[in-house]
Write a protein that binds this DNA or RNA. Structure first.
Length: 609
RNA sequence: GCUUCCGUAGCACAGUCGGUAGUGCACUUCACUCGUAAUGAAGGGGUCGCCGGUUCGAAUCCGGCCGGGAGCUCCA
């Protein structure tokens, strides 16, 4: 195919892939030349969004000091201007060519007997198993810009029980400018890092004694509460009722729910205290007195549902819950607020009849649209179907999956969503909502899960119109997913400059001299009475110091008050730490703040007319 | 859990060849009373993550553990 037939964009994408993929062969060749062919088992080397990687099994770890040598070797190879030749071989021939290369051998063995196997030879000493296509001569890559990004571990075929390989990640772009732009983007992402901003803005912290369990600091908790208040307001409109329930419960409950069997590794368990006859004390997991810290809210919502008999007329019943939950994670998986062991879901469990499912899920999607839209976030739906370790009747699963597909087809059009086969929860299929932040990263947030299993385990019922008792269906759902993770995403998405309504403290006041304190106090009072989160610095110190601190906190507005303001009753407003507006009447400013709090608008107002 | 890197004052970091610690910001005090990101001076603050080993001597070398980052696997 050529440029004309493919169209410009497709051609560029093809070319980029071809470049990256070909460069990955060059990386493998370089590593082999540096380490010696007999010492290298090379696995696979695909292209990725910003370059490519290649997995190797090597006699020693590759360290940073090796990067330059590898890059130089790659450049040296390109300068040889070697020809790349494609050759089709039989399975037997392929096995012979890659004798001694266990990963290649395994790949070949897994191919069907009649598959056409192609190899690419670069120069006269390097051959790789590859579908292609590739460049024809190394000189085509001479202009390409590449740089080793990092080296890390990865499992052969993603299986943690198999060989752990060293994965060499390389940035690769057609030219230096694009590489430079990409690195600038990476730096931008680093600057947005919520762990860095969270510390700077005093939003949250961690302590070694509680790994993965965030402490919300005063400023951070103001933000947290503002977010939750918004969430509550939206859900109230849709008939949600909030409950709160015990944090720990006897093991018995988790046996009934199935979590003890399916989720035990993820639970913090409190063993029972045993006192022997000789007075010695031990702790054991037993049937009676062992408690589990809740990893999920569902069983409690069910107990609340079960506390009385419900009529079909009451359904759907929606019990929402934002209690703290705890989940044990493997040590290497924790990551700031993105992956924690203690968090709050914006959870809900809805009890309803089968024929209500479609309307209900449609309603949940409307809520999601409103809420994500408030933050300006784009999102896509992803359907996850029956996993291997599923519980329950396969027929029920099939029906549930079919109905979810129907809803998604209706909402987003056929093919307007993704399907993730086998990735559902053990109790039912689910729809996940994934968003993209303003620098293009994808996050899993909301989830909507159908559950036919728990109503069965807990023998749930409702009184149907015909006077018989029937079993309700359950929906687990969350829009933010976890409040903690969502706030982490928001910090990075907004780079700490939150929309006004969400900012921890919305207005900071800086009196220039102590004699302006009295006026500043009146102003502070006025703002607070208007429902605006405000702080003022009355310390006897240089006004520049005060401004600096409030800018670090990223208060949306900083009001500097001095003689002029006192005389005229107006304000000097520092907007987002950057622009300035002078002579703003106090009432006008307050009205703007109240408006932003009411409408949840994204943009910070800059003119106060 | 695995691979790899890291852990020095509240924060950001320096610390050579092993000889019991420094800088900047922040904090405290004094002076300055200031118009939008660093006023000046003085001062306080550290069992160098924890435990053990090597050594006359360990922030430094070795081992284990705890915590953190980047990935893998898993997940909200």
């Amino acid at each position: 195919m050529n440029k004309e037939e493919m169209g410009k964009e497709a051609y560029q994408a093809f070319y980029l892939e071809n470049y990256r993929h070909s460069l990955s062969h060059v990386l493998a060749k370089a590593v082999i030349e540096l380490f010696g062919k007999e010492n290298v088992q090379y696995a696979i080397g695909p292209q990725i969004d910003d370059g490519f990687y290649y997995d190797f099994l090597l006699p020693r770890p590759i360290v940073k000091e090796d990067y330059a040598a590898i890059e130089n070797k790659m450049r040296e190879i390109l300068k040889r201007k070697e020809n790349w030749t494609r050759k089709e071989v039989s399975k037997a021939e392929a096995l012979e060519i890659f004798r001694g290369q266990k990963f290649k051998t395994e790949l070949i063995e897994d191919l069907p007997e009649d598959e056409t196997i192609s190899t690419y030879t670069t120069g006269d000493d390097f051959i790789d198993l590859c579908r292609g296509p590739h460049i024809e001569n190394s000189q085509e890559l001479l202009g390409a810009a590449f740089e080793i990004k990092s080296v890390s571990g990865s499992y052969w075929r993603g299986d943690e029980h198999r060989d752990q390989l060293q994965r060499v990640y390389v940035y690769a772009f057609p030219n230096k400018d694009e590489l430079k732009a990409h690195k600038a983007m990476m730096r931008e992402a680093m600057e947005r890092d919520h762990k860095k901003l969270g510390k700077e803005m005093e939003l949250f912290m961690f302590d070694e004694t509680a790994p993965g369990m965030p402490y919300w600091l005063p400023r951070g908790f103001k933000l947290f509460n503002a977010l939750l208040a918004f969430w509550r307001q939206e859900h109230e409109k849709h008939g949600y009722q909030e409950i709160s329930a015990p944090q720990i419960q006897k093991r018995e409950l988790w046996l009934t729910s199935g979590h003890w069997d399916h989720y035990r590794d993820g639970m913090f368990v409190l063993p029972a205290k045993k006192v022997a006859e000789d007075g010695s004390v031990s702790f054991e997991v037993d049937d009676q007195d062992t408690y589990c810290v809740k990893p999920m809210n569902c069983p409690n919502a069910i107990l609340v549902y079960k506390s009385k008999l419900h009529s079909y007329k009451e359904l759907p019943i929606r019990y929402s819950e934002t209690d703290v939950i705890h989940r044990r994670e493997k040590s290497g998986e924790l990551n700031g607020l993105f992956r924690v062991q203690m968090f709050r879901q914006d959870d809900d469990h809805t009890f309803l009849t089968e024929d209500m499912i479609e309307d209900e899920i449609s309603d949940i999607m409307d809520i999601a649209k409103t809420i994500y839209g408030t933050f300006g976030l784009e999102y896509v739906a992803e359907l996850s179907t029956r996993p291997e370790d599923y519980m329950g009747d396969i027929e029920v699963w099939n029906q549930a999956e079919a109905s979810l597909k129907r809803i998604l087809d209706k909402k987003y059009g056929e093919g307007g969503y993704e399907i993730n086969e086998g990735d559902g929860a053990f109790y039912g299929p689910k729809i996940d909502l994934k968003m993209r932040d303003c620098i293009g990263r994808e996050w899993q947030m909301g989830t909507i899960q159908l559950d036919f299993q728990l109503p069965l385990n807990f023998d749930l019922k409702y009184m149907a119109a015909d006077g018989t008792q029937k079993r309700p269906v359950m929906i687990h759902r969350a829009i933010f997913g976890s409040m903690e993770r969502f706030i982490g995403i928001l910090i990075e998405n907004f780079k700490g400059r939150f929309p006004f309504w969400l900012a921890p403290v919305q207005v900071g006041i800086v009196p220039i001299k102590p004699e302006h304190n009295e006026y500043a106090k009146q102003l502070e009072k006025k703002l607070r009475e208007a429902g605006i989160r405000v702080e003022a610095d009355y310390a006897d110190k240089n006004m520049n110091d005060k401004i600096k601190t409030l800018r670090t906190y990223r208060d949306p507005y900083i009001l500097v008050v001095g003689d002029k303001e006192m005389e005229t009753g107006t304000l000097a407003v520092n907007i987002a730490g950057n622009k300035k507006a002078y002579g703003v009447p106090v009432e006008t400013f307050i009205a703007a703040c109240e408006r932003m709090n009411k409408t949840y608008q994204l943009e910070l107002e800059e003119t106060f007319a």
